[in-house]
Amino acid sequence: ERVRARYDYEAQNEDELSFKKGDIITVLEKDDGWWKGRNGKEGLFPSNYVEELE
Rank of each mutant, 00 (worst) to 15 (best):
K30D: 04
Y7E: 12
L28T: 12
Q12R: 13
K36S: 04
L28S: 05
L17F: 02
K36N: 06
Q12A: 11
D15F: 15
K20L: 10
L53E: 08
Q12P: 04
L17Y: 00
E10S: 10
E54M: 12
R38V: 11
K41H: 11
L28Y: 06
F19M: 08
Y9K: 02
D23Q: 08
A11W: 03
G37M: 00
F19Y: 02
G40T: 11
S18E: 04
E16M: 02
V27H: 02
P46F: 03
F19G: 01
E51P: 03
G43I: 00
V27N: 01
V27T: 03
L44M: 14
Q12C: 10
L28C: 08
K41M: 10
S18M: 03
E14M: 09
L44I: 15
F19D: 01
W35R: 02
W34D: 05
G33T: 11
K36D: 04
A5Y: 00
G43E: 02
P46S: 05
S18P: 04
R2S: 09
G33K: 12
K30W: 07
G22E: 03
K20C: 10
G22V: 02
S47D: 07
K20I: 08
V27S: 01
V3R: 06
P46V: 02
E52Q: 13
G37T: 02
E29T: 11
N48M: 11
G22L: 03
D32T: 09
G37F: 00
E51Q: 07
D23F: 04
R4I: 13
V27A: 04
K20Q: 09
R38W: 15
L44N: 09
Y49F: 13
E52R: 12
I24V: 10
A5F: 00
E16P: 00
G37R: 00
R6Y: 05
D15H: 14
E14Q: 11
N13A: 10
W34K: 07
E42C: 08
K30G: 03
Y9I: 01
Q12N: 10
E16A: 00
E42R: 05
E52A: 15
L17G: 01
I25P: 01
G33W: 13
W35A: 05
R6G: 06
E1D: 14
F19L: 08
N39E: 06
Y7V: 11
W34Y: 11
G37L: 00
R6V: 14
G37A: 00
N13D: 09
W35M: 12
E16L: 00
I25F: 07
T26H: 10
E52Y: 12
Q12Y: 05
G43W: 00
S47T: 07
G40M: 09
N48E: 14
I24C: 09
F19Q: 03
F19W: 00
A5R: 01
G43V: 01
N48Q: 14
D31Q: 15
Y49C: 13
K30A: 06
I24L: 10
L28F: 08
I24Q: 04
E42K: 06
E14V: 10
W35C: 07
L53S: 07
E1R: 14
F19H: 02
K30N: 04
E42I: 15
R38M: 12
D8S: 07
G33M: 13
S47E: 09
G22Y: 03
D15I: 09
L44P: 01
D15Y: 15
A11F: 03
E52L: 13
E54N: 13
R6C: 13
R2V: 12
V27K: 01
S18L: 00
V27W: 00
E1Q: 14
L53I: 15
R4K: 11
V3P: 02
N39I: 15
Y7H: 12
G37C: 03
K41P: 08
G43M: 02
Y9C: 06
K41R: 14
A5E: 05
E51I: 05
L28K: 04
N48D: 14
K30T: 06
A5V: 08
R2G: 06
R2F: 11
N48I: 12
N39S: 12
L53M: 13
K41Y: 10
D15W: 15
G22K: 02
G43H: 01
D32E: 14
I25K: 02
V27G: 02
Y7G: 08
S18D: 08
I24H: 05
K21P: 03
G43Y: 00
G33Y: 15
W34T: 03
F45Q: 03
W35S: 06
V50K: 00
W35Q: 05
D8K: 00
W35Y: 09
R4V: 13
W34F: 10
F45L: 04
E1N: 15
E14L: 09
D31E: 14
R4C: 09
R38D: 14
I25A: 04
G33E: 14
G43F: 00
W34C: 11
S47V: 10
V50I: 10
R4F: 00
Y7L: 14
P46R: 05
L17R: 00
S18A: 05
R2N: 10
L44R: 13
V27F: 01
F45P: 02
I25S: 01
E29L: 11
G37H: 00
G37S: 01
Y49H: 10
G37D: 05
K36H: 09
T26L: 13
L44V: 14
A11G: 11
D8R: 00
W34L: 06
D15M: 13
Y7I: 11
E52T: 13
Q12G: 07
K21R: 10
T26Q: 12
D32W: 03
W35P: 05
D31M: 15
W35V: 07
G43P: 02
A11E: 05
S18Q: 04
E42L: 11
E10L: 10
I25R: 01
Y49R: 08
T26M: 11
E42Y: 05
R2Y: 10
D8Q: 03
K21Q: 11
V27R: 01
D15K: 11
G37Q: 00
N39T: 13
L28E: 04
G33H: 15
G40S: 09
G33R: 11
G37W: 00
E52K: 12
E1Y: 12
G40L: 10
I24R: 02
L28V: 10
R38T: 14
Y7A: 14
L28D: 05
N39V: 11
D32Y: 06
V50C: 05
G33L: 12
L53Y: 14
T26A: 08
G33N: 14
N13K: 12
V3G: 04
K30S: 05
E16Q: 13
Y9Q: 05
E10Y: 13
E29S: 15
D15P: 05
Y7R: 14
V3D: 03
Y9W: 07
A5M: 03
S47N: 09
Y7T: 10
D31H: 15
A5S: 04
I24T: 06
D23R: 00
E14Y: 09
L44Y: 15
K30H: 06
G40V: 13
R4P: 01
R4E: 06
D31R: 15
A5H: 03
I25E: 03
E29R: 08
K36R: 15
R2Q: 14
L53C: 11
K21D: 05
L53D: 07
A11D: 02
E16G: 06
W35H: 05
R6I: 15
K21L: 07
E54I: 14
L53R: 03
V27P: 01
L17I: 12
E29H: 14
E16T: 00
N39D: 07
N13L: 06
W34H: 07
E54H: 14
R2E: 12
G40Q: 10
R38E: 12
E54D: 13
Y49V: 08
F19N: 03
V3T: 04
L17M: 09
Q12V: 10
E10F: 11
L28W: 03
D32N: 15
V50N: 02
N13F: 08
R4Q: 08
L53N: 06
E29K: 09
